[in-house]
Computed example of a mutant assay.
Amino acid sequence: MLFSFLRPFCALLLMGCAAGAMATPALASAQDDPYGDWVGTLVTDKGTCPDTYESVLQIRSDKLFFAPATGTLVLHGTPDKDHKRFHAQLMLKDAKDKPLPMVFEGHPEGDTIVGVFGTPNCRAHVVLQRPKNTGWSHFLGDR
């Protein structure tokens, strides 16, 4: 064959991909390793909430961000040192110039972060997980 010299290389590449897929490391708990991105969909408990799209929580060592329904509004906060509580807020004003607070409060629970989101017109809960889909999994055809 014309490309027979590539056969050993392709075989090694496929074996490496298969070994990597089988050797998936156990995920650390959300309290032990909270850093990175977390996603989940808000579930409305009361009022009208942005529960159509996934919300994103992004935790860094010195700051955190929560974007309800991956919208344009972003709540800001600072994680506590022992990773037991995640608080973010944004203070806006409504059309009548009254305060319009938005608050996210979460805590680790196993390998998830469980939280509540609230505004004067909304109360919702959410279970956030690490995103399942990555560019590499799409490359391998795993969706």
Results as ranks from 00 to 15, higher is better:
M1K: 06
M1Q: 09
F3Q: 08
S4E: 10
F5H: 06
R7M: 02
L14W: 09
M15I: 13
G16P: 04
A21K: 07
A23G: 05
A23C: 15
A23W: 13
T24N: 14
P25R: 11
A26I: 10
A26G: 11
L27T: 08
S29P: 12
S29E: 11
A30M: 10
A30L: 10
Q31D: 03
P34N: 03
G36N: 10
D37M: 06
W38T: 05
W38V: 07
G40M: 11
V43S: 07
V43Y: 02
V43T: 10
T44Y: 02
T44V: 09
D45F: 03
C49A: 12
P50K: 06
D51E: 08
T52E: 15
E54W: 01
E54T: 07
E54P: 01
S55L: 03
L57A: 06
R60P: 00
R60G: 09
K63Q: 09
F65P: 00
F66R: 00
F66I: 00
A67H: 04
A67P: 01
P68N: 06
P68L: 03
T70M: 12
V74E: 04
H76N: 14
H76Y: 12
T78M: 12
T78K: 12
T78W: 03
K81C: 02
D82N: 06
K84T: 15
F86A: 00
H87N: 12
A88W: 01
L90Y: 11
L92K: 12
A95T: 01
A95V: 02
K96D: 09
D97Q: 09
K98V: 00
P99R: 12
P99Q: 14
L100H: 01
L100F: 09
P101G: 11
M102V: 04
V103T: 11
F104W: 06
F104E: 01
H107R: 07
P108F: 11
P108R: 12
D111C: 07
D111G: 04
T112H: 05
I113Y: 05
F117T: 01
G118D: 03
N121D: 15
N121Y: 11
C122N: 05
H125D: 05
V126F: 06
V127Q: 05
V127D: 03
L128M: 10
L128T: 01
Q129G: 03
R130I: 08
R130F: 08
R130Y: 06
R130Q: 09
P131S: 03
K132L: 07
N133Q: 12
T134L: 09
T134V: 13
T134S: 15
S137Q: 14
L140I: 14
L140G: 09
L140C: 13
D142C: 09
